[in-house]
Nucleic acid binder design. Sequence first.
DNA 1: CGCATAACGTA
DNA 2: CGTACGTTATGCGC
Length: 912
Amino acid sequence: MSTSAHGPQPEQTSTLLLIDGHSLAYRAFYALPTDNFRTATGQYTNAVYGFTSMLINVLGAEAPTHVAVAFDVSRESFRQTEYAEYKAGRAKTPPEFAGQVDLVQEVLEAMNISVVTKDGYEADDVLATMATQAAEAGLSVLVMSGDRDCLQLSNDKITVLYPKKGVSEMARMTPDAIEDKYGVSPENYRGLAALVGESADNLPGVPGVGPKTAAKWIAKYEGLDGVIAHIDEIGGKVGESLRENINNVLRNQRLNKLLTDVVLPVEIADTERRAPSREAVHQLFDALEFRVLRDRLFADSGPDESTAEAFTVETERHGPDGLAAWLQGIGTPAGLAVSGTWRHGSGDIDLLAIAPAAGTVDADAGNEQPRVGVIDPSALDTEAENALANWLADADVPKVMHDAKGPSQALAARGLPLRGLTCDTELAAYLLHPDQRTYKLDDLVMRYLGRTIEIDESDDGQLSLDLDGDAAADTALGSNAAGVRDLAKALDGELEKIGAAGLLTDLELPIQRVLAGMETAGIAVDSDRIARLEDMFSDAAERAADAAYETIGRQVNLGSPKQLQVVLFDELDMPKTKRTKTGYTTDADALTDLFAKTEHPFLAHLLDYRDNIRLKQTVEGLRKAVSDDGRVHTSYQQTVAATGRLSSTDPNLQNIPVRTTAGRQIREVFVVGKDSGGRAYESLLTADYSQIEMRIMAHLSGDDGLQAAFRAGEDLHNFVGARVFHVDEADVSAEMRSKVKAMSYGLAYGLSAFGLSRQLKISVDEAGGLRDEYFARFGGVRDYLQDVVEQARRTGYTETIKGRRRYLPDLTSSNRQRRDMAERAALNAPIQGSAADIMKLAMLGVDEGLRHGELGSRMLLQVHDEVIIEVASGEADAVEELVRDKMANAYSLDVPLDVNVGHGKSWHEAAH
DNA sequence: CGCATAACGTA
DNA sequence: CGTACGTTATGCGC
């Protein structure tokens, strides 16, 4: 580390920071409101937050070289042995506090701070021992505790930090400060405390004697021993009281002495400060929703962070002259960054930055760090543009980018298709941690490289920088290119470590290209049909609303659950439904129940209104999403779903209604269209996997019965129903079938007997009996499900058939709700995620097959277990054969994969 | 205007 | 008190 004229001077002596973990967490708990500190999962975090905040503050302010945090390991210590009433009668720990100490310890672990405990002793004794040892070894010591007993430790080497108000202010209790505040020296503080007593510890002192009187006596007789020696000279009522309660005082004095000779499992040297574990902190702070704290931690503390350097890059503009030669000579993999705009599968670019691989030498300058080239494609002549196009399209020139799908579409729109992408740092980061909310480049560069990066993001996350040789824009874009180049290396290494490099290279990167093509293609819609449907649903909604108003004699906003609750539960006095956070639910299930009970027509009209207004909104959304080419171009999100599924936005085409006849009409507006040259396609083809998740369950569990069902090729739920209910398959009733169907799928979601009973409207006993019967016949399923959770708890993650991980740290949470949620996620993630893997493999096969067979048909949509293809004229049979083959053989399970295919002029028609 | 909530569509 | 998503309107608070 180099010395600098600026900033704090390096400490001449080492400083040990010692913290009483439980005491400070408890302080924080009462200093901050519980309500404002709750995660989405309901975990209270106010104590964790306050503790962590104080910790970060003190680390920044005091810059200690050694840090340790002590915790009480149990409620029993030698003090209870001596005085059974010690700390008795304390209020029970508030439930909101429970579990937060565990989280504090997780924070400390992530920050690489030593935690010290010792059975049979209190944290204060541990602190006192360590403080004394360290002071003897010549360190200066800070003891941070909310327990006033620690004040006795204060001396010229040891300072006590005592929390004042809130979590941000600390009093530095040096010997002078203690003298000022209490009128006694630190050595005499124990005596004062013994006289006064400590109600929190259930240690009564001398009634009538407060800190003032006690200090006066101690000063006069030079300590508590002197007070006791002259006990008969003290007059008045308080003197009487002292003599009556002298045994209290003597006991208090024995108990409030902190031990300095505890045998500890650590040496001072073991507590040397280490940099936080970047990964662990991110993961934990994400879970705790500590965004600001994370920024504070990484902004101003830690030996590692303080040296964080910005990417400083030198850029050079490449115009028409010499671009071709420069591209020829640069080292790879090169980092690419693009500024421009992109959405709906198209776009345009302003600038392109290319950061050659580090270590390659600039031909002209001989720089160790090669300069980043910045190119304005619109400023090139034909020859230079061709050189750029060839370089970008060359699959043998390795390139890395961040979130390449949009930029690649913008480049393609300009006639600059991109090939040779060996890493997309967003996809790589997603594979490493699929449940992060965002994967912004600057965050990842900070997280994996410990460096800052200049970023200029517009609200849609796209880089949009000034044109015309703005040097700042070039530098910003250039540092992005350099950042992504170096980040890719780090992420590739991390992926290798967990055996997931192939997932990036062979699955996510190629599927990104396929998705880019699907987005650009879009799907044709019948705009007239959209308009008619919108009117129809709108009219129906209006009629339903009027009818509803009629029944209650006034108008209300039927879209407002709050107003509906007034009508239903106050005015109509209906029985209360299930509680929500803010009142009583008015969801469709509850309204249907209410209607069965009351037969009030308002409910029927309200449900009718809901259905129609919702359909109207869906259609309206589609109408507004139609592009000039008469098609709807959705966006596929590849890094959102923690299981590995895709998601679809703007508009979401993965939740177009299908269950009701009215809803299915919406699928009729998605129709076969024309290509960009105006040539009509022949039809739409839909292909979907039948029961893929249950097949994966059969495969993963190895259950003989379930596998036999699929090999026999018969109706799964009928097969299962016959065995669960001990009847012939011909005698499985519709009711039995629907019960086992719900059971089967419920298992893959971690459904409880209670949940199953509620869904099927049967008793909990019956639901439990159903589950027992199920497991009696399909024991492999039960064993598998137990095993999945057990293994995930042990390793910390679940895995799909392709090795896609999902980390579930909450499996070991002390919070039951969080733990249960994590268990259900653990049950489902391998199943849902493996299905996603298989579908991605199938899409790659189909895409490759279409290109290899030089077919003009193209994939348009994916809806988790279904793909929709626009079939070029004369290709229907060939495409069907291809799709059946690629989907059925995408991955070899122990049971066959069954694929349904349909053709039609519309999505609805094709689904038949 | 941003945010949380309730509701509801899909696999 | 069943997983995974995205969108909408309402209503609150800044």
